[in-house]
Design a protein around this nucleic acid. Structure first.
Lengths: 365, 365
DNA sequence: TCGAGTTGCTGAAAGGTTTCAAGAAGATTG
DNA sequence: CAATCTTCTTGAAACCTTTCAGCAACTCGA
């Protein structure tokens, strides 16, 4: 297996090369509407009309202006447009972790809906880091984007609730929230956790672990609560749930959890693990398999999200499926409504998750 | 297994719910520097100084201004700032496919480098769609971002070469380009293809398939060329390579290719497949396994990128590894240099890929 | 006490676009 | 032919910030 050391960018023995070309930049000041107007022999207002209301300009004038634009390489200055017109054509989705396919699928739904409405989407990645989240929120507010979609790290952040009052609509994605300030679109995570554990209980498991963290993330807590509730319903004390808290919802953390689990003596080791998301589950699975545990015989695993890779895993993963794209699309539609409909009322939409059973719990019957 | 039908957002029998709250928005016009100046009893210039050069303002005045800002909920208008100051604090990375972990890893490198320089990154997703790519390029140019990092669909697009001349620096990521207009950061894809095929030849394979497409994507072509070159070096005619062209570099297309491959009579079926990326490889793998082919006994598979999921696959995937984060970081650094260093010279940086051998070709020896 | 240097603040101008009331030219009607 | 409509075009004002030359007040040394 290859070494993990990073290739160097310098022209070294490993074949990496760096080729330099000499060529100076010649950045001249861009031509504006004024220059276009002069070149086309019309007024500023007419150029603006060509840009914004072409139908009111006579075809011949329009052609002259368009020719002038092309020959000068005119590029509209969006800052100036936005400053004057007061409106932005941009939506932002601030993701919790761009490396998690769950969120990129949500983003796809957002983009589809935005595109249909003629808007563009900027994606931002907080990477589960509260500072970065805060920085991006400030930036987006300063940019006066049309609205912000966010899967927050901490949905109680005061920053979040201040935004709508100051004029930037915010829709919370993948979290239910009920402060009257935002719309939210979520999946019932408590129910999801319940489904997962009920399934494991039905298969006869008794020593069950819950792998997830950090506990600042709402999804992690809700899914755990669902797990506990399932135990309670089955007449078992919820304290029976063996909790393994991770530092993030990543494959690497999942591998770490696998290390810990596999290290336990077989008699105390759980016979099943429910992970707060598929990344953790995949990492856990990979580590356990490589340490010689059989899945599901020695350890059954349930993931969460049902990302595309779950089905392609070493042992196809049982997982709790969420309507990812629909989540994003619905959120974007709510945001659009909020920013265009004066009678908008905040909504809290909750979808229902669904258990997808595969080999990692059922075996290959 | 669960049905694929999308849950409905309406309050129906499936438990999905939609809760409405009545509450009207009260969007007042935001307070500007002028209002802050009036409230603090100072001039506009002083407020601006507090914002941009706090050290030149006396502590007592600064405190007054900051208090006024806080009480009025002042949010700087970035459009106006940028219009006047002429500079943006934003970098954009226009990705080929945000759903591909390879690109989100590259994005991580970009963000790290940008953050160190005090800039923010907006991610855009062309999703292998030329129209979307064009739209985003227009938008970003109009926004006057500091610079654009892009993994293009077609690196010969005239749009791409026009941007730098008009003042927006562009760095091409994951493609080598030599038109004197951009920096580029790439990995030697021809070599990568060669490594993959050389490995398969060494294992004794003779009927080898190349799975990739569409052929407008440079990476797809280079890797294929590398594959052919390896065959030539081994004294075999490059036409021996069985080409399966896909419509995109996705898991779904990989499954489609698997369907086609598995349908062939065993005597004509390739004994090994080299896929243009790991998503294709994972899809291919999943489909072949579910159709009863054994990997690597019936079909050996080599992927490309070595994304995190490759190692966790049904059969751990042999893959060609690229320095993903370093790619992004280097690109961002080149972009920063271009936009700040008047003596900048365009560079073409090429990294060297590395074969990572796992079970999907080697078996479990 | 005077002059020079420092420190802190001011106010007008500028940046590129959109908007809008109003004007010009041409077409239509009675 | 005059009056009324239409259709296009105009030019100034406004959007909010940053910049910068200049001014006022103070400090310090001789």
């Amino acid at each position: 297996m290859a070494a993990d050391s990073a290739p160097s960018p310098l022209p070294e023995g490993d074949g990496t090369s760096r080729v330099t070309a000499r060529r100076r930049k010649a950045r001249r000041r861009a031509a504006g509407v004024k220059a276009v107007a002069a070149a086309a022999g019309v007024s500023l207002g007419t150029v603006s009309n060509v840009l914004n209301r072409p139908e009111v300009v006579s075809p011949v004038t329009r052609a002259k202006v368009e020719a002038a634009m092309a020959s000068l390489g005119f590029v509209r200055n969006e800052s100036a447009r936005q400053l004057r017109a007061g409106s932005s054509r941009i939506l932002a989705y601030l993701m919790l972790d761009a490396g998690n396919p769950f969120f990129t699928d949500v983003a796809k739904g957002v983009e589809d809906a935005a595109r249909e409405a003629g808007l563009s989407v900027f994606l931002c990645n907080s990477n589960e880091d509260a500072d970065r989240e805060a920085d991006y929120l400030d930036l987006l507010e300063q940019q006066r984007v049309q609205g912000i979609l966010i899967t927050p790290i901490d949905q109680n952040s005061s920053r979040l609730s201040k935004l709508p009052a100051r004029g930037t609509p915010v829709v919370v994605v993948d979290r239910a929230i009920d402060d009257g300030e935002h719309c939210s679109v979520a999946v019932n995570d408590v129910l999801g956790g319940e489904l997962a554990i009920a399934h494991l209980l039905e298969l006869g498991h008794d020593r069950i672990a819950y792998v997830g963290g950090p506990n600042t993330i709402g999804q992690v807590l809700d899914r755990r609560d669902g797990a506990r509730r399932a135990l309670r319903k089955a007449g078992k004390p919820p304290e029976n749930l063996i909790e393994i808290t991770t530092g993030a919802l990543t494959v690497a953390e999942g591998r770490g959890a696998g290390q810990r689990l596999a290290g336990l003596p077989a008699a105390r080791r759980p016979t099943a693990a429910f992970c707060a998301n598929d990344l953790l589950a995949l990492g856990l699975l990979q580590q356990c398999v490589s340490l010689g545990l059989r899945v599901p015989e020695d350890l059954a695993i349930v993931g969460y999200d049902d990302i595309e890779f779950a089905a392609a895993a070493a042992v196809p993963l049982t997982s709790v499926r969420q309507p990812r794209q629909l989540l994003g699309r619905t959120a974007a539609e709510l945001l659009l409504d909020e920013s265009s409909n004066p009678d908008h009322e905040h909504q809290r939409v909750t979808f229902t998750p669904e258990l997808v059973v595969r080999t990692s719990t059922r075996g290959t019957l």
